[in-house]
């Protein structure tokens, strides 16, 4: 089964987060819990729904991912941009970041 991870946006500030191996949420995709079987996938989805109901995150969903070179990498470009931040934009050239 294709490995997947669970992602969402944090309610308070909208920042992208990933469901972690210890059942929390992290801004780093590398902390993600990888799932490649039905049971653990269902568990993650349920945990996501609980977190959404509790007002921790918004709109949790599963995405395809793979491990390469010791890092977790989302399959779709959209998700890679979500994980890493905009590839272009003013925040990259500004001193505030």
């Amino acid at each position: 089964m294709k490995p997947q991870i669970l992602t969402a946006n944090r309610l308070r500030d909208g920042i992208v987060v990933f469901f972690t191996r210890d059942g929390g949420w992290s801004e780093r995709i590398d902390d993600s819990r990888l799932s490649d079987d039905e049971a653990s996938r269902a568990e993650m989805v349920a945990a996501g729904e609980r977190a959404a109901a509790a007002g921790t995150v918004v709109g949790p969903y599963l995405i395809d991912a793979a491990v390469s070179g010791g890092h977790i990498r989302a399959d779709r470009l959209r998700e890679r941009i979500r994980a890493a931040g905009p590839t272009a934009g003013s925040e990259q050239t500004l001193k505030y970041v």
Partner: peptide, 19 residues
């Protein structure tokens, strides 16, 4: 993050505010 984005509809968008 120290900038704003002016749009074609004469609005300005802020990309990073917290709820």
């Amino acid at each position: 993050k120290g900038y704003g984005h002016f749009t074609t509809r004469q609005n300005i968008q802020f990309n990073w505010p917290a709820l």
